[in-house]
Write a protein that binds this DNA or RNA. Structure first.
Lengths: 116, 116
DNA sequence: TATTTTGGTTACTATTAGGTAACTACAAAA
DNA sequence: TTTTGTAGTTACCTAATAGTAACCAAAATA
């Protein structure tokens, strides 16, 4: 899932890209934002993602210290996710990307967000 | 190469991620920076990239308006690439990512950049 | 008793991305 | 005459990623 050539690079920027620059991670981080959210909610809110891929991505985000996972010892299970300090510090970058996009993207048909 | 579900999303953020969030594009944009650079130089400077993938990525960046391609009618051929206004406007985002990374990454062994 | 709920995991398959090597054009230099 | 240089393209093959469907536990609910 992660490219070792990026993650083991001796260049810090290359490592950073290896950590966060795939298509699902920015989406997941953006959806979580400042809230605490359960697995099922993420699965329901994020379009087109499968539970399998969601699980994998969440695991990697946790390993890389962007995400905190809180599993309650209950049945049926309850697991909550929220961004760590590192993850929260990434949110402004996503906001810059949104600004950059709205300034330069050639206008397409619709403008509704996939989620709120 | 590009995921249609992202690029045709009605959510502008999702589209933006579809456009720029793969592992090679931020690297390429960062390497080009503010200079004009030839294909062969990019190929030599960026570690691990094959000419095939480099060509594909450059083509997509051009299609998405981040990159300008200038082909001289010479033999042997000479092609120069440089960032467009849209591409240049993306550079600060890469700088934020570098800052974010240096602040939060768990210190690894080496700190040399792959390229200058 | 059967069904639902939740957050996964597993096995299998399909799709996509990426790597490798050979090849192109043509001028200039050796 | 052969080699060199540039910026690719093409075909073929392998590796990585993603999708699908079935399955799990154990308590609560119908």
């Amino acid at each position: 899932m992660r490219d070792d050539r990026f993650c083991n690079s001796n260049c810090p920027f290359t490592r950073a890209i290896g950590t966060i620059s795939n298509k699902w991670k920015p989406i997941i981080i953006n959806v979580i934002g400042t809230r605490t959210i359960r697995f099922g909610q993420l699965d329901a809110i994020i379009p087109h993602i499968s539970r399998k891929v969601l699980t994998e991505q969440l695991k990697e985000l946790e390993e890389d210290g962007l995400l905190e996972r809180l599993a309650y010892k209950e049945l049926p299970p309850r697991v909550e996710y929220k961004l760590s300090e590192k993850g929260l510090a990434f949110l402004p970058i996503l906001e810059y990307i949104k600004e950059w996009n709205s300034k330069y993207e050639i206008v397409p048909i619709l403008e509704e967000p996939d989620y709120k």
